[in-house]
Design a protein around this nucleic acid. Structure first.
Lengths: 154, 154
DNA sequence: CCATTCAGCACTGAATTGGTCCTCTTTCGG
DNA sequence: CCGAAAGAGGACCAATTCAGTGCTGAATGG
């Protein structure tokens, strides 16, 4: 189903929560409570997000997490990337493996790359601020995929 | 990594192969040989694709599979849909479950839907014929995601 | 100096997925 | 009319991956 991993999904929820209540610092426990997500998992996710520079962390008794940048400057793609690694639909699209066994019959790669890029663009074009807004503030700027035929992709 | 399931990947490879050598009928065994994919798996995939109306099948001693439609009239989205089910990035986006526990804090849904649609469009806009062409025939009509900011989505 | 909170592991349990196998039905050729 | 070749449709097994948990250690502030 082209599913996003649950981790990435949770990550967006957590980030969204932080964007909506921009206190100085929020602890992992508070976020877990606010989102009804298990605390250890939340902790793990926040750590990863902090490692990737999307959050800043403060240790110690008055510690917690905060967005490293304004919500308008963080894209959904970055969150997904931090938690799920590079966005690559197929093996082929992730660089470095040129050793695709059936590469000979796979001139398809170029085309996969293009699809891949479209998806990256779709994810990269949505900011955290937009995700956090109660209802979409972007009616005037819909996310669509260029001049593509509107094929039924249900 | 937002991975496509391997099944869907294989499916595109198989369909591409069929599109490239449009004989009347090709057996599962022949396709398996041509793609270096395990025969039982190929068989299974072809069955699924046939069920979804993307392939026609002919039983019996002179049987085999063939594209149900011209390659220009089959989109990658359809292949993915046949093998992986509906394209839905998150639980929320797949219709029917309105019972998302944390729905209250999830006005995010509208935005997910939009991202989702962009991805569907990206997949729906590429035809099998285009995937099968040795090198891309569509330089003049690149698949891009609208006027989105070209955020680094590596 | 102690409580709190993040950092960084390693580990485990389980769900999904990928893959195989077996049996039945259809079709054609001898 | 019979047998071989193909697909149809299951059931089933194996294994990778993923989600989740639990330690221990380090920082911070009162």
């Amino acid at each position: 189903m082209i599913r996003l991993s649950r981790m990435a999904d949770y990550g967006v929820v957590l980030m969204t929560q932080l964007a909506r209540q921009p206190r100085d610092l929020t602890t992992a426990a508070e976020l877990a409570a606010a989102t009804s997500l298990p605390t250890p998992t939340v902790s793990k996710l926040l750590k990863l997000l902090a490692q990737d520079g999307l959050l800043t962390s403060q240790r110690g008794i008055r510690g917690g997490y905060a967005l490293a940048r304004p919500a308008t400057a963080i894209s959904v793609a970055e969150i997904v990337h931090a938690l799920d690694g590079p966005i690559a639909l197929t093996e082929c699209t992730s660089e470095q493996h040129t050793n695709c066994e059936i590469e000979a019959l796979c001139p398809t790669r170029t085309n996969w790359r293009r699809i891949n890029d479209a998806i990256r663009a779709a994810l990269g074009g949505v900011t955290l601020a937009e995700m956090a807004s109660p209802f979409d503030t972007r009616l005037a700027r819909p996310v669509r995929a260029g001049a593509l035929s509107p094929l039924a992709a249900e």
